[in-house]
């Protein structure tokens, strides 16, 4: 069992994004702590996105990967998309061999590109939100004539 004060993954705010760079060997304990820290960070600092730099990770098993994917899903529920970056060829090949499900994952080559892509992601997201808001407005207008509406 990991002790309470396990190694922590530092998180910092840069260009409105929560940026975490993982440079240590992953364990379930570390990842659980990280999930907790990250979600709180997003909530407190209002980060619009998460960039996870995995360039220091040499080994990753399916369990670690699932843990990260779950954290990404949770961050998405808080309104922050996650972009992974710096994945090593060996790690990627291993994940493929293990049959990891990577379809909904965004990834970039390095930190620079991750920031660039994040801008694109947040921009399209904002448009999508606006569209949604607009269509919601339209619905309300339509709803005025709807006899079944409250």
């Amino acid at each position: 069992m990991e002790s309470k004060d396990t190694l922590r993954i530092p998180i910092q705010l840069s260009q409105g994004c929560a940026v975490a760079s993982i440079q240590i060997d992953l364990t379930t304990g570390i990842l659980e702590q990280f999930r907790h820290d990250l979600l709180r960070f997003i909530d407190e600092k209002g980060a619009t996105g998460v960039i996870l730099d995995l360039s220091g990770v040499e080994l990753m098993d399916l369990e670690d990967f699932e843990e990260i994917r779950m954290t990404m899903h949770m961050a998405r529920l808080l309104g922050s998309e996650t972009i992974l970056c710096g994945l090593r060829p060996g790690v990627v090949a291993a994940l493929m061999d293990l049959g990891a499900d990577t379809d909904d994952i965004l990834a970039s080559f390095n930190l620079d590109e991750a920031f660039q892509n994040m801008q694109e992601v947040t921009r399209t997201k904002r448009y999508a939100d606006q569209d949604e808001a607009q269509s919601a407005d339209n619905k309300e207008e339509e709803g005025a004539g709807d006899p079944f509406a409250d």
Binding site: L84, C85, L87, P89, V92, A93, L95, M96, T102, D103, I105, A107, S108, F109, N110, E113, A114, N117
Partner: peptide
Amino acid sequence: KITRATRLMG
């Protein structure tokens, strides 16, 4: 699978 792998590397 190959295309998935390359996407993970951006």
